[in-house]
Write a protein that binds this DNA or RNA. Structure first.
Length: 405
DNA sequence: TCTGGGGTCCTAGGACCC
DNA sequence: TCTGGGGTCCTAGGACCC
């Protein structure tokens, strides 16, 4: 029996929430941005999109295509709260809910839809519940798997509902450009183009051996996608994280060593604290650097022991940075911790280490209570505290919750 | 006064070991 | 006085996603 999967995708999520909670923005072209100096448009309202405002544009580009564009600094807590409440709505229809990102979820209603009627009535009911509760719209795609459900929601946006039944999959995707498929981006579609493969229909007909030769293991997945097949499950449980990282584009390009170090300490602290909060320790530490010309590179180091100690992270980042010869000023810095495992939470036998652990816990508690960076080390030199970043990839809770509150 | 930040997965070369 | 070969770990980078 074929599965029935729903993809619920909020329409211009951040912008819609802002328009709803600040009524004077309703019906206006707005763009949600971060609070940092060098920021980018995260979400544009549909009124703004009509002018050509797109995600990823900087403020000047946005204003250029739409001079009356209203810029709104995003509010993470509002979106995270809404996302959690949305999940509660979904859970009244099925226990099989995967919160894929802050504005997108997959629901497996194979076993539950008959309680409400057919899959379409479930979709209609969810749309109504979301609208009644938050006054925002979403688009729901229904299909036999996540790939097709996602596609259905993409083509029907905004405020849409589309059910692609198993028997209609082939015809629906036959003439669709491969780029429309979830997982085929700029590069792969360009390569496929040079091979004469432009539509999903053509992709599905292409012999597996041809795709395998060109794309390796991805080739198998491409072939399946061309046929509209996808066997990935709807994951109820959040998967164990593989890495925890933070990066920031600096307010201005810098080369001053002290400033760079101060930013790196702060990033190390953000990483360490998130790891501790969620009970993870990691073994690999990476540093990411971007130059003003956007050349970006990373350098990593594998430790002998697992850690989530801010200072251990920071010292190793210092080690890495000391091995680099800078060819220019620095635009972005990033720190991440990977090869994660659960912290066994056992107290170390070494006194020194135990003391340090309890010190870190105390500091974390104070910061949790009074806000970030209240308690800082003496060497902390960054004055302006700017954690006003917003990212659609966040989750409202768990490790991928980046809200430090 | 251009171009965010959070991730995952895959590749490919080299080190190292048996 | 002819360079086997498998496996794992480490590293850097790139494609893709929201």
């Amino acid at each position: 029996m074929s599965k029935i999967i729903l993809c619920v995708d909020m329409d211009a999520f951040f912008a819609s929430v802002e328009q709803r909670t600040r009524p004077y923005l309703k019906g206006k072209p707005i763009a949600v941005i971060g609070s940092a100096k060098r920021t980018v448009i995260t979400t544009a309202s549909y009124e703004a999109r009509a002018y050509g405002v797109k995600t990823g544009m900087n403020i000047y580009e946005g204003k250029k295509v739409c001079p009356q564009l209203i810029l709104v600094i995003g509010d993470n807590e509002k979106y995270a709260y809404t996302c959690m409440e949305l999940e509660r709505i979904y859970l009244t229809f099925t226990p099989d809910v995967e919160v894929y990102s802050i504005d997108e979820a997959f629901l497996d209603i194979t076993k539950s839809h008959h309680l409400f009627g057919n899959p379409e009535t479930v979709g209609i009911a969810i749309k109504k519940a979301v609208k009644d509760r938050f006054g925002i719209t979403c688009t729901i795609g229904i299909g036999p798997n996540k790939l097709i459900a996602k596609l259905a929601s993409d083509v029907q946006k905004p405020d849409g509902l589309k059910w692609i039944k198993p028997e209609d999959v082939k015809d629906t995707i036959k003439d669709l450009p491969v780029k429309e498929l979830w997982g085929i981006g700029q590069k792969i579609s360009a390569i496929l183009g040079t091979m004469g493969i432009r539509t999903c229909g053509k992709l599905g007909q292409t012999p597996l051996s041809v795709l395998r030769n060109r794309f390796g293991i991805i080739g198998m997945r491409l072939k399946a996608m061309g046929l509209g097949l996808d066997d990935s499950p709807v994951n109820r449980e959040e998967e164990e994280p593989k890495s925890i990282g933070h990066s920031m584009t600096l307010p201005r390009d810098i080369w001053e060593r002290e400033e760079i170090e101060a930013y790196l300490l702060r990033l190390s602290e953000m990483v360490g604290r998130r790891a501790r909060k969620n009970g993870f320790i990691g073994k690999v530490i990476s540093l990411v650097i971007r130059y003003p010309d956007f050349e970006t590179f990373s350098k990593q180091k594998t430790l002998n022991d697992f850690t989530n100690d801010t200072h251990v992270i920071y010292w190793n980042v210092m080690d890495i940075i000391n091995s680099i010869r800078f060819r220019d000023k620095v635009r972005l810095l990033g720190v991440s911790l990977s090869t994660l495992t659960r912290d066994p939470l056992q107290l170390s036998l070494f006194k020194e280490s135990r003391r340090r652990k309890s010190l870190l816990q105390t500091m974390d508690r104070i910061n949790d209570r009074y806000g970030d960076f209240t308690l800082i080390w003496g060497s902390y030199k960054i004055q302006e505290v700017d954690s006003g970043v917003i990212s659609p990839a966040w989750r409202p809770s768990g490790v991928r919750c980046v809200n430090f509150k």
